Amino acid sequence: MKKLLGSLDDERNDIYLLIDKKSLIKDINFKNDVTKSKIFQYAPVEIFWGDYSQIEAEMFLFKQAAKNNYEYYHLISRADLPLVSQDKIHDFFDKNPNKEFLTLILDKNNDQKIADRVSIYHFFVKICGKNTKNIFLKTFFSIYSRLEKIAQKLFKVDRLKNSNIEIQYGSNWVTIDNEFIKYVLSREEWIEHTFKHTICTDEVFLPTLLVNSKYKDRLFYAKMTENKSSNEFQGNLRYINWWSGPQYPKIWGTEDYNELEHAKEKGYIFARKFDSSFDVNIINEVLKNDDIGNK
């Protein structure tokens, strides 16, 4: 986290930091780790994979940051790093005002599964397989989730039946402008009504809001990706390798440095996923790059 904050530390950047209450770093005060940026660190909250709490966390950060009316808002996590200098980042966005940077994903084989994330109710997500190590709870959730889906299909439950909206799937890591973030916040009540008791819709709510609004015409890169190859471009300007493994997404190692350099040449500004417990050397290599060091 400290290395990421150091790479963002610039008088032109304000940093809004929200840490999961379950994280080992939840009690660390990071305010002294930046000298140029203003940093706003909030009390930790519990955030669960796949749960509506992910959307609540994002909306909380958007709401806090939007009070200051920035030109752009970059949603990243501690697993991200910039690939280029702050000068280059600011220069790029100064030259591309009033754009939305999202990755829209085309997944024809799973269209129904993605729709089912929203169209039927999902309860007890906080104890799903990725959120607990308890074997009993894992087994319970696995059985329950199947029965939950069967029962709702049997009774023709469809939360989207009268909504007349197009569900769009994409990456939850985005760069969006001030006008769109104000629009998102104005739809907070609708967001809660539509996405509470759903699963994994942090990857759905922003893309769905975008494509059902006038802001879809402001996408910087509108072509959808299938995340199957580095030949595709990800419109959120985050280089994320979903195709080669062994992890999905791939956690970068020292041997991947040249691939990250090539991503930078293609126009990517950030990359993920980095993990210091997996390979700290690649983090050091990326951050000591002259392009980042020369802010």
Results as ranks from 00 to 15, higher is better:
215 Y>H: 10
157 V>G: 14
279 D>L: 06
220 F>M: 09
215 Y>A: 15
176 I>K: 13
125 V>E: 15
78 R>L: 07
69 N>A: 08
127 I>L: 15
44 P>S: 12
19 I>S: 15
231 N>P: 03
133 K>A: 15
22 K>S: 15
70 Y>C: 05
34 V>C: 14
180 F>S: 13
278 F>P: 08
190 W>Q: 12
58 E>T: 00
189 E>W: 07
85 S>Y: 05
231 N>E: 09
59 M>K: 03
150 I>P: 08
260 L>D: 11
10 D>R: 05
120 I>R: 00
272 R>S: 07
28 I>A: 15
25 I>T: 08
67 K>D: 10
197 H>M: 10
101 F>K: 05
55 I>P: 06
94 D>M: 07
271 A>E: 04
287 L>D: 11
124 F>R: 08
259 E>H: 01
141 F>N: 14
252 W>K: 10
141 F>W: 13
116 D>V: 00
209 L>G: 14
259 E>K: 03
220 F>R: 09
196 K>T: 08
123 F>G: 12
64 Q>G: 04
179 E>A: 14
103 T>S: 13
225 T>A: 15
278 F>M: 05
248 Y>D: 09
40 F>N: 13
72 Y>S: 04
249 P>L: 10
225 T>K: 11
38 K>H: 09
118 V>R: 00
213 S>R: 05
71 E>D: 05
154 L>C: 15
197 H>Q: 13
219 L>A: 11
72 Y>E: 03
32 N>D: 13
3 K>C: 12
119 S>K: 00
202 D>E: 11
205 F>I: 03
258 N>Q: 10
87 D>N: 04
259 E>T: 01
270 F>N: 07
62 F>P: 03
46 E>V: 02
269 I>V: 04
145 S>N: 12
248 Y>E: 09
178 N>H: 08
177 D>K: 02
123 F>E: 13
255 E>N: 07
295 K>P: 06
168 Q>H: 04
136 F>K: 14
208 T>Y: 09
24 L>A: 15
266 K>Q: 05
291 D>H: 01
20 D>Q: 10
122 H>R: 07
172 N>E: 09
103 T>R: 04
183 Y>C: 12
66 A>F: 04
162 N>P: 02
210 L>E: 11
46 E>W: 03
144 Y>M: 11
27 D>T: 03
198 T>H: 12
255 E>F: 02
244 S>L: 13
131 N>P: 12
220 F>K: 05
28 I>S: 15
39 I>C: 13
97 P>L: 08
62 F>H: 04
108 K>A: 10
114 I>R: 04
212 N>M: 07
246 P>M: 13
27 D>A: 14
169 Y>F: 08
186 S>K: 06
77 S>A: 09
197 H>N: 14
156 K>F: 09
84 V>Q: 10
173 W>R: 07
254 T>L: 11
106 L>D: 13
190 W>Y: 13
182 K>G: 09
269 I>R: 05
44 P>E: 08
101 F>Y: 06
115 A>Q: 08
223 K>C: 06
285 E>W: 02
186 S>F: 08
179 E>H: 03
56 E>W: 01
191 I>N: 11
